[in-house]
Design a binder for these strands. Structure first.
Lengths: 340, 340
DNA sequence: CTGAAAGCGCTAACAA
DNA sequence: TTGTTAGCGCTTTCAG
């Protein structure tokens, strides 16, 4: 019973068992099950039959150790609850589905130390590639990524110093562009509603770019309202009530997310405010679920599906490059901003 | 170069390298890194120092093969885009964080064959446990789960025939209970809006239970509107417009999901309908993001976080039982149904 | 407290 | 087309 987990009942089935049942060598079974090398049709069928009859499930641990090949791709994201990440994952999945590679997801919970641990765990399984959201990591994490010896792609954001390859949009530019659109449409008293968390690096960058864009148009932020916690209609509603209570003459509100913007929209509509005349609203991200609100929120499509695809393509191509792929976010005016 | 992936540059670092750098045996390094057995403080520090200096990341593949222990728990869910599953995952994560176990997520895309493949892939890594959403699987998948030799827990749903352990709510009962609440409040002309997909087993069961509940109250469904595709405000809005166009005298709409119900709510409010007087609405699932809609939708909390926790607890306890844990969903009247 | 030997289940390389 | 041999990097076991 050496090396056996005290819990498991029966020892696992091995190639040996299938080989015996089929009357061939282990090697032949291995070849059949992997469709490698030439095997006669007769033998192949005998082996498949035996494997199926016995319910044999190969041991990838042993296979990976022997072949030094692991068909897993580590994907590290902050959270699954934030709707942006499933979209990135679906892009990754779409591309990897065409390959033998499989994504394995880990979450960092917006915490550097936790992220380091997750990356360490993933690398200890010797995956074929690693995709990590964001550019902000602690030193240990950066060192591991740099020395992993596998393709590593940082995604979502290009404003910073990537360890290796990088696919994303510039959130600074996204913020600046939104500021330009708003200013060009004649709004002058502009407020910002967003997260107070410094760990939400991309939202911080959008705000920073937004303020730069306003400055370039000779404007500045009239007020800002921050919240701690998760975004939601209630949060957006609350922030909107607060900021308009404090600074009633605001004529535009820029939110860190469409979700919060939706809450703000509902609030303003209830108050009977004229949108986009009296006040304009804009968010960020373009979520499909929200189509169907009373008005379409002005927003920016963050290209997250495409980001996932491009990152996965780099991994699938085994690209050990430090290429930076900058995608362009798309401004969607919707109905909550005046026509240009 | 035997067995080396043609792509990777440098060979991986091994225990041997750390052992040499620290001037001890591989075995000692192994013990230090796993905090096993007695090692002198001096040796321990030397080893840790060398490992950190070299940036050594252990190879879990080799470790798992040698020890026959894999600290992974497979979790198979239909999709990450559906907001219910991240909640289950967070419950699982919360419990597993207190153990050495790590969840590994796979998605079945609401397809039996795909699910079978994902389960096969997962089992081939010899995880310490397996959590699978739903009770409907093809024969091959059921056979694999039954013979895995590890704790297997089916989650979400208890209406059916579990392979082993099971944690969930009765969706039939949930539907029936909602029908009772609606009937008790005097609604009589009741419509259903939901998915046309037969693969959405739990929604089908809720509808079935709902119709039973209506029948028990001497009522029956006046109309139903089905959609193919994803739920969203637009979908809910569209279904609501359609069903009310066809059957204008409906006084209640039961939706398969709060998301769709929210779309319906917005539609009805825009049309100036009196809710919950002229018409009542109810959904299913209780999503926190939706707090902040103009009215709180009547719904049922499906206990998904707790379901995740309980399932993970069974895995963590290495419970090879076939226990069925039935949780009770909680009716939340909100504002869109008349007071009892 | 530390080390040496054996082997986990599989696959690469070579032999037949 | 099939079989044999060696060994992947680690941990278990047992000996010092």
């Amino acid at each position: 019973m050496r090396g056996r987990n005290p819990f498991d009942g029966k020892p696992q089935m091995t190639l040996r068992d299938v080989a015996d049942a089929a009357g061939v060598s282990e090697m032949t079974v291995s070849r059949v099950l992997r469709n490698r090398g030439d095997v006669s049709d007769k033998t192949r069928e005998r082996v498949f039959g035996a494997a199926r009859r016995l319910g044999y499930v190969p041991n990838k641990i042993a296979g990976a150790l022997a072949s030094n090949r692991v068909n897993l791709v580590g994907v590290v994201i902050p959270s699954l609850s934030n709707m942006v990440f499933p979209d990135v994952l679906s892009g990754i999945g779409e591309v990897l589905d065409e390959t033998p590679l499989q994504p394995v997801i880990g979450t960092s919970k917006y915490d550097d130390q936790h992220e380091e641990n997750v990356i360490y765990e993933m690398l200890s399984w010797r995956p074929s590639g690693l995709i990590v959201a964001g550019l902000e990591h602690n030193e240990a994490a950066r060192a591991m990524m740099a020395n992993a010896g596998i393709p590593v792609v940082e995604v979502m954001d290009v404003d910073g110093d990537p360890v290796a390859a990088c696919v994303g949009i510039s959130h600074i530019e996204a913020g600046r562009q939104m500021a330009r659109e708003i200013a060009a449409r004649g709004y002058r008293r502009i407020g910002y509603c967003g997260s107070s968390s410094l760990n939400d690096h991309r939202a911080q960058k959008r705000r920073q770019g937004f303020e730069q864009g306003l400055a370039e148009a000779g404007l500045s932020l009239a007020d800002a309202c921050l919240y701690a916690g998760t975004s939601g209609f209630g949060t957006g509603r609350g922030m909107t009530a607060e900021i308009l209570g404090r600074t009633p003459d605001l004529d535009f509100l820029y939110y860190n997310s469409d979700i919060n913007a939706a809450g703000g929209l509902l609030y303003c509509l209830e108050k009977g405010m004229d949108i986009p005349g009296r006040i304009g609203l804009a968010g960020f991200n373009s979520f499909e679920v929200l189509d169907g609100l009373p008005m379409r929120i002005a927003t920016m499509d963050s290209q997250r599906h495409e980001i996932g695809r491009r990152a996965a393509e780099l991994i699938a191509a085994n690209a050990l490059t430090d290429e930076i792929v900058t995608l362009a976010p798309v401004f969607l005016p919707g109905d909550t901003i005046r026509a240009g």
